[in-house]
């Protein structure tokens, strides 16, 4: 069953008079269904429309044309907006812009408080959410003293406390160091696999996209390529054409294939690449 459906979604930004006053088309007839429990990675260079699309998933933006349905609810229906935002939570790029309180547990309680959840239930949810993201021992700490990765995990806990069905993350690791990126990614991956929460992850890091069930590549407001990570990353030339990277092992295999070495397509990790190369090196009697 679909948790999010975008049906022919178009979106314009109104521009100022001096710029000619013509509306700027950012999303161009997007048709997309995201299934419950799916892990979708959304790629595309800056300005390709991926953040604009993501903001449609919890009614932060409303389509200029077409419809977005969240579990069957039309995002244009104002009466459903609270329920839609509870169901689809959003984590943004800058961890400093989304924590509102001076104590970690209060920050996590902010969402459920606004939903009118009873104090006893809030207590339970906050502890559970902090435990899930591995931050329970920090519940009485000040958020501004945490590392970037820890802040992002608190932000995720704040959404979990609202018992969402889906989490949309807009470049949640762009400002983090490798350790922080790993913490956040592992948390997101676990939520998806263990709790069945649908994940939409916008990222510039190809090694993060590799974890997804499905990868979507956006370009000029359209979905240009989609498929499993293996399918998408085997299209190296097209990805480069839209200014995206591919994982290094994939790129290396592609380069060697171009030179006539018949390596298989769809290699994503260093281990797979080394395995494939071993067979060819064996055949070439290198070092054995």
């Amino acid at each position: 069953m679909n948790i999010i459906s975008a049906n022919d979604v178009r979106f314009y930004y109104e521009t100022e008079e001096e710029a000619g006053g013509r509306p700027l088309l950012v999303l161009d007839d997007i048709r997309l269904d995201i299934e419950r429990g799916e892990f979708v990675a959304l790629l595309g260079h800056n300005g390709s429309g991926k953040s604009t699309l993501a903001k449609h998933f919890n009614a932060m933006l409303l389509p200029s044309g077409g419809r977005v349905l969240v579990s069957g609810m039309d995002t244009k229906d104002e009466k459903l907006r609270y329920e839609i935002r509870r169901m689809v939570g959003m984590v943004l790029q800058n961890p400093d812009n989304q924590l509102v309180s001076t104590i970690v547990e209060e920050d996590v309680a902010f969402g459920p408080e606004n939903l009118g959840v009873s104090p006893k239930e809030i207590r339970r949810r906050v502890d559970e959410a902090l435990k899930t993201v591995g931050m329970l021992e920090y519940s009485d700490h000040a958020p501004h003293k945490l590392s970037g990765g820890q802040k992002q995990r608190v932000a995720i806990a704040g959404i979990l406390a609202m018992r969402p069905d889906c989490i949309v993350l807009d470049e949640p690791t762009a400002m983090l160091d490798p350790q922080g990126r790993k913490e956040v990614l592992e948390t997101v991956f676990r939520l998806n696999k263990e709790q069945g929460i649908t994940v939409v992850l916008i990222t510039h890091y190809m090694e993060e996209a590799v974890l997804a069930d499905r990868v979507l590549v956006m370009e000029e407001g359209r979905i240009l390529i989609q498929g499993t990570p293996r399918e998408v990353f085997s299209r190296v030339d097209e990805l480069r054409g839209v200014e995206l990277d591919v994982p290094q092992p994939t790129e290396l295999c592609h380069e060697l294939r171009m030179q006539g070495v018949p390596l298989p397509e769809g290699i994503l990790t260093a281990e797979e690449c080394a395995q494939a190369l071993s067979m060819f090196l064996e055949a070439a009697h290198v070092g054995h």
Binding site: P247, Q248, P249, L252, A270, C273, A274, S278, G287, H288
Partner: peptide, 14 residues
């Protein structure tokens, strides 16, 4: 990642 690929290959004796 490519550095790691070479480490694996060396570890395998290539």
């Amino acid at each position: 990642a490519v550095t790691r690929i070479f480490m694996i290959l060396r570890a395998r004796g290539y």
